[in-house]
């Protein structure tokens, strides 16, 4: 075992040992180290403090730090596992792991449920879905009459809200995504399979004695 933790942790608060992170996630040690190359570049893009703030996250997503986006904000909140207003390297790896092609299907369903449960009540409520639909329409410059939005919501809740109590619980969501598997497409990033070839420079910065694949 090398001195990766002791060196990197000085510059990167909350930095965790790549070997431990690999054991807790769908990534190999080499993939964790390759992700560190990506993390270093994102976390130094606005303030070079070794942490990713919301502005840096938005800059990495949109190449535009000023672009406010409901969905990017929600993803940031979920990645900010320790609720510190910033994403540290451990948060980054553990959160991205859910998007790995090999991550458990149940983890993807859980994450997507949390994503759409904007206020964290344990239910996806109609008002939340309406808020997200309106945000999407604004983002894409599409105009839909309020009646049309209500028709879409009626159809969605007729299919997903099996007990018709006006909100989607976890078990209804599990059934709904089973019937509509395309809804989980956003939960898998094929890029994560090739992360070591996308960021090959990790080899030069590796501080573990042996690269475990």
């Amino acid at each position: 075992m090398g001195c990766f933790h002791s060196t990197a942790s000085k510059q990167f608060p909350g930095h965790e040992d790549p070997v431990i992170l690999a054991s807790q996630t769908a990534f190999s040690v080499s993939e964790v180290e390759a992700l560190f190359e990506l993390y270093k570049s994102i976390s130094s893009s606005v303030i070079d403090d070794g942490l990713i703030n919301k502005e840096e996250f938005q800059l990495a997503l949109f190449k535009n730090r000023k672009k406010e986006n409901l969905f990017a904000n929600r993803i940031f909140e979920l990645f900010d596992v320790k609720k510190k207003g910033v994403i540290d390297f451990g948060d980054f790896v553990k959160s991205l792991s859910v998007f790995h092609p090999n991550a458990p299907h149940e983890d993807k369903i859980d994450f997507s449920f949390k994503l759409y449960d904007l206020d964290g009540t344990g239910f996806i409520e109609r008002q939340e879905v309406k808020q997200m639909l309106i945000a999407l329409l604004c983002e894409s410059g599409m105009k839909l009459a309020d009646e049309t939005v209500e028709i879409i919501l009626d159809k969605t809740f007729l299919e997903a809200d099996v007990n018709q109590d006006g909100k989607i619980d976890k078990s209804e969501w599990q059934n709904f995504v089973r019937q509509n598997p395309s809804l989980l497409k956003i939960m898998t990033l094929p890029y994560l399979r090739d992360i070591t070839t996308t960021f090959p420079s990790f080899v030069f910065h590796s501080e573990v004695d042996e690269i475990v694949t």
Partner: peptide
Amino acid sequence: ATPVIMNAFELISTSQGLNLSSLFEK
């Protein structure tokens, strides 16, 4: 023809803010 109404989540999942692949573009 009868218009096909997508469900809300299909529409929402097209948001750019949910497309994390852009994180990997250098």
